[in-house]
Simulated scan of single mutants.
Amino acid sequence: MGFEGADPGTVRPGGRTARVRESVLRAAGDALAEQGFARLDLADVARRAEVGKTTVYRRWGTVTGLVADLLLDMAEQSLPRTETGSLLGDLTANARLVQRTLADPRQGALFKAVIAAATCEAKTAEALHRFYDIRVNEWAPCVQQAIDRGEVPEGTDVHEVVRAVSAPLYYRLLTSGDRLDEAAADRAATAAAAAARAGAYLRGDAGRA
């Protein structure tokens, strides 16, 4: 569910406008990872990206506007879901993508900065919520396919299962300081899959029944 798989700095086609956006967003990500949200400055981002300050101010306007676009770009560039034919296989693929993202020194620091900012900046919080909505919606069909195969009960909340996979990994990132390795990712996937099969994520009346 994190920024999964795309290499920072990947240039997409689209001419000068797209190249400027890519440069500015890469610079913004670097600055966030190095300095945190509180010290993020549009003029500094423009300098890092080697573009005019006027361009950055005109297009993004505010730091929160720039971070919102950065999160949108990250969601757009994230790798599509993996379909292995089993719920555990799919959730493990998701967990390992999230783990690699959060264990990366740059990306882990970037997410810490954005999450910290989201606790006190409403627009940043909205952008972060949109980012995760996009990523959860990308992976939710894997759980629906498991329902269709009979692996998990009808009425399972597919979005909650996907969220349950990455939750322990973000907990490690933000609170415990424990090593964030593939073993942790695999445990998170195994736990979410087992809970889903047991009916832990049934919605509403289905869960109460």
Rank of each mutant, 00 (worst) to 15 (best):
F37D: 04
Q99A: 11
Y132N: 10
N137P: 03
L91C: 13
W139C: 15
V143Q: 10
V67I: 03
E138A: 13
D44F: 01
A122T: 07
Q35K: 08
V158N: 12
I147D: 04
N137S: 14
T64P: 01
A164D: 10
A46F: 06
P153Y: 01
R81F: 02
P80M: 02
Q77T: 01
G61I: 05
M74Y: 05
R48V: 07
P153M: 01
L72R: 11
L32A: 08
E121L: 03
V161L: 12
R59P: 02
A146F: 05
W139T: 15
L88W: 09
S86C: 06
R96K: 13
A127M: 03
D90L: 12
A33C: 06
E76G: 12
L110D: 03
A43G: 06
L87A: 14
R106C: 07
E160N: 12
E83D: 14
D157F: 04
L87V: 09
A75N: 10
V67F: 04
A127W: 01
P153E: 02
L42Y: 06
L72F: 02
T54A: 15
T84S: 15
Y171N: 01
L102S: 09
N94F: 08
V165Y: 07
P105F: 12
A113M: 08
L72I: 00
L79C: 07
W60C: 00
L79G: 11
D148V: 11
L174M: 11
I134Q: 14
I147H: 11
K112I: 11
G36K: 14
I147P: 01
L40C: 06
L72N: 02
A95E: 07
A118W: 00
R59Q: 13
W60M: 02
K123S: 10
V67D: 00
Y171W: 00
V98A: 14
C142K: 11
G61N: 09
P153G: 03
T55W: 05
D44N: 05
G89F: 06
R106T: 13
A75M: 08
A33F: 06
F37Q: 02
T82K: 11
L40E: 08
A46N: 03
T84P: 04
W139A: 15
D148N: 12
G150P: 04
Q35F: 05
A93W: 03
K123T: 05
E121Q: 12
G65H: 08
W139H: 15
W60V: 01
E126C: 04
I147V: 15
V136G: 10
H159K: 15
R47Y: 05
A122D: 14
T119P: 00
A95Y: 07
R47L: 13
V114H: 01
P105Y: 10
D69G: 00
R81H: 07
T82P: 01
A93Y: 04
A103P: 12
F131D: 08
T175I: 02
L70D: 08
A93F: 00
Q35Y: 05
T92G: 03
A46K: 09
D69I: 04
T124L: 05
L71S: 01
